[in-house]
Nucleic acid binder design. Structure first.
Lengths: 187, 187
DNA sequence: CCTGAAATATGATTTGGATCATATGATGCC
DNA sequence: GGCATCATATGATCCAAATCATATTTCAGG
């Protein structure tokens, strides 16, 4: 759970569980608040002119969604459960009034600023064309935390291309591969 | 200028101009505040293990940078002027104390939430592999506002690939091209 | 312990986007 | 008006990453 929301009164938090395919909210519905994913996965989707579904955002455990709904009347997209899980709804009015508490405001702002920074960096990294340089930039940014598969998807690269780039970086001595599946920067 | 900062006392705003190549701040320096770009361009850069320079973020007119510095002691990267311009430094202490004003806090949070949403969407769009679908998603997201060149760079596509994808979408009747250089969704 | 699934790893082939080239229409400026 | 510059536009070529294929290792669950 992102830290600022620890300062929200527990009465404003509503836990809920949903099965895959369920919608947490629909585009056009009145906003009641934002959500935090405990486990499972939620996709935010918008519908295109010809009915195509565009995924706007994929939220996994620990991530929040629809923060902007606190400041608007209606949801602007659908929230579809991609993988069954448990979520917490945080009441919009409670968040709005929590901004009267400077501690909450600062905690919120800190968290938001940090997230914006991370996203900008992610966008910059994804923009690197060469797989090898992209992977190296990802290593420098410390994006390889769990599996290479997750790392690859964060980089928007196929996992094969990622493995190959890692291999090349190891061969060139730019990163180390002490054991199967573990890589780290060569200092 | 992003709206929340209108609520900061003018005494906390320091205008400055810098030539290309100058540094607005350096990694490791004590933080004094965040910056808003009036005109020109600033790159945030981090130095890699072997001295390579990684661009973390490119800020243009109207964009702010180093928001997270308000919450930390030292800058975590260099800010290099890529194109000479005018900037405003917003004092860190003034921002921190402004959070005591709920109006500022809400304006800040609204702006941050909106930015996070836009960035998530941008990342999702850039992740679409096929140029045609990426361009179409960009059209749906209304990212083609000024020139096709800017649109292409927002999509992380070459402008040639973007023109070709636009042409194909026009041929397939998915978008309209009433006059040279103007495109819009076909409803 | 056995089995199936997922991660790791690498080879072969295909393809789509980058790059290079070129042309024309617009725009601004002296 | 003439010139330079930039956006628009499209064709040709090349290359790198996606995709497909396959094998081994690891690991969770029955």
């Amino acid at each position: 759970m992102p830290e600022p929301y620890n300062l929200i009164p527990p009465s404003a938090l509503r836990p809920l569980t949903r099965a895959a395919g369920d919608k947490v909210f629909r585009q056009g519905a009145r906003t009641c608040g934002l959500y935090v994913v405990k486990c499972g996965r939620v996709h935010l989707e918008r519908v295109g002119p010809d009915g195509e579904r565009f995924i706007i955002y994929r939220a996994g455990p620990g991530m929040s969604l629809a923060e902007a709904s606190v400041f608007s009347d209606r949801y602007h997209c659908d929230a579809v459960v991609a993988e069954a899980g448990a979520f917490v709804q945080i009441d919009k009015a409670a968040v709005l009034s929590a901004f009267a508490d400077p501690d909450f405001a600062r905690a919120y702002a800190r968290q938001a600023a940090q997230q914006i920074q991370a996203q900008r960096q992610a966008l910059e990294i994804v923009g690197i064309r060469r797989a090898e340089e992209r992977v190296y930039a990802g290593m420098v940014a410390d994006l390889l935390e769990s599996s290479v598969v997750d790392f690859a998807s964060a980089l928007h690269l196929s996992h094969e291309a990622t493995y190959r780039a890692l291999r090349k970086l190891v061969n060139d001595g730019r990163i180390a591969n002490p054991t199967r599946g573990t890589y780290h920067l060569r200092p």
